[in-house]
Design a binder for these strands. Sequence first.
DNA 1: CGCGTTTGACCTGCGC
DNA 2: GCGCAGGTCAAACGCG
Length: 191
Amino acid sequence: MAYLPSQAGREGGSYDDLESDQPAAFDISDYILSDEVTAPASFGQPESPVPPMVGVGQTATQTSSGSNLSAAGSSSSATRSAVERLRTDEGSKIAFRTKSEVEILDDGFKWRKYGKKSVKNSPNPRNYYRCSTEGCSVKKRVERDKEDPSYVITTYEGTHNHMSPGVVYYTTQDSTSGRFYVAGCELPPGS
DNA sequence: CGCGTTTGACCTGCGC
DNA sequence: GCGCAGGTCAAACGCG
């Protein structure tokens, strides 16, 4: 695990206590981590052609109706999150911590649980989810923060190759290629 | 009946 | 080679 610059020097340790000096655009209380950091890590990179998928849901829902990121029962006030998109050789991996009473955050996609495992350094079990859309192999790991159970650590792995049925999408145009991108998705070439 | 969850077993990578 | 830990599989079960 390598931590992002904002957390540099804290390797091997906890990733709590991020409340310190994060940008104010989001009420960030999160940490971000990835196995492979291949791009500069600054939250909410405006040049990023494809914004973080959860940020999409968050933006869409909050923008449209100020509704909830978590449809599973927690109020928006009980859920704060920040995300960072990172690239790996196989795609992207995003990890973030969310203050939430529930573990299942509705990001607009349909997830199917396929495993549960207790991890060594945490009293809380880790849950494994997979996107239930046919042909989509995005995975998600969810576990409670060992040091602050009121936080949920979510790790997304991979990129959706389809649109979410439950999210209002925003498109952004890449200045160099002129192509349009759908936030949260990386559509197959030619589609 | 179809879909999602649960849960123990199995597989794999890694450190010693 | 062995043991441990993390990740995945798949059968059983529950629910709408």
